[in-house]
């Protein structure tokens, strides 16, 4: 039996693995993909040490660092459940494999929230994208909408503004939110138009997306666009465990990243501590690993 199972492949999981490996713990890291959500990020400009780096470049650097240590890595596998039984943690994979360890860190991150409106499912990958940096090239010289005007939405809009003819940001609140620097850039970009106080009601089209309907001041309006990027926030990937969660599904942890099960820890976007930022995830991975080492003594 290994000392530690780490579930996840993003900055929190990889940092935890590096610290745990340096503490001479035996580790299995299991993930669907190394990098996680990071791989769908364009330019990262707020991670110290890098003025600008793409998510894919940072993923490669993290992967290389991780693989320089003695860590068993199981890639391309999905975890079904993680639970504590007496004094050990049982991690069951979708392929039926069982991993037993003395302790576990869940660092499964988060995924994009869906709108849940008419047309969203029908036009997924037919003009709707949840990864503007991956699919943006298909919207060259077209008119597109970004639904959501917070950090992720403004970032996507800035990226798409360099590719598309026109970018609309549809924000339900009365103003944009997120980083002031990004908001300033959005306001200065000529081909971005911000529509605030607008609730998206429906996405329509024929074979591909042709537009969306939104409501503003009790009036329904149509906006003709060929592409739609949905950026309304994140939901935690926490379904694999029954430890205590808050109403948003985030795993409740102590300052040491400990969950309601004393052998299970949670770090990064999946827990209820802090904002969804790479540096916070990495720091929490470190805290969790150091604490697990203490627990094993």
């Amino acid at each position: 039996m290994k000392d530690l199972t780490i579930i996840g492949g993003g900055p929190a999981a990889i940092t935890a693995a590096i610290y745990a490996a340096r503490a001479k713990m035996t580790i299995t890291l299991v993930t669907e993909e190394l990098g996680g959500y990071l791989t769908k990020t364009d330019k990262i400009e707020n991670y110290p040490g890098f003025k600008t780096i793409t998510g894919l470049e940072l993923t490669k650097a993290l992967e290389e660092h991780l693989k320089s240590y003695d860590v068993e890595i199981i890639e391309d596998e999905t975890v079904k459940t993680v639970k504590q039984e007496n004094n050990e943690v049982i991690t069951e994979l979708e392929n039926g494999q069982i991993l037993k360890s003395k302790i576990a860190i869940i660092a499964t991150g988060s995924k994009r929230k869906k709108l849940g409106i008419k047309g969203e499912q029908e036009f997924a990958n037919k003009g709707i994208t949840y990864c503007a940096v991956c699919d943006g090239s298909l919207f060259q010289d077209q008119e597109v909408a970004v639904i959501g005007g917070s950090y992720a939405g403004t970032k996507s809009a800035m990226y798409l503004s360099k590719i598309a003819k026109k970018v609309y940001i549809i924000e339900i609140q009365n103003e944009l939110s997120g980083e002031e620097l990004l908001i300033e850039q959005v306001k200065k970009t000529e081909n971005i138009e911000v529509i605030t106080g607008a609730k998206t009601l429906e996405i329509y089209g024929d074979e591909y997306v042709k537009g969306l309907k939104y409501e503003t001041n009790n009036e329904t309006k149509n906006l003709e666009v060929q592409g739609i990027s949905i950026e309304i926030g994140l939901i935690p990937n926490s379904e694999i465990t029954n430890v205590e969660k808050n109403k948003e599904g985030k795993i409740i942890v102590t300052d040491d990243m400990k969950t309601s099960s004393n052998k299970i820890f949670a770090a990064g976007d999946v827990n209820n501590k802090g904002k969804e930022q790479i540096i916070i995830a990495a720091a929490q991975g470190c805290i969790a690993a150091l604490k697990t080492k203490e627990e094993l003594k």
Binding site: N125, K126, G127, T129, C134, D135, S137, L138, Q140, I163, E207, Y208, G227
Partner: peptide, 21 residues
Amino acid sequence: DTFENKEATEKAFKKAGQKRI
């Protein structure tokens, strides 16, 4: 490269029936 070959890309995505890279 889909940024540099717009026409070929358009034909390909129509053939695939999906706008996804």
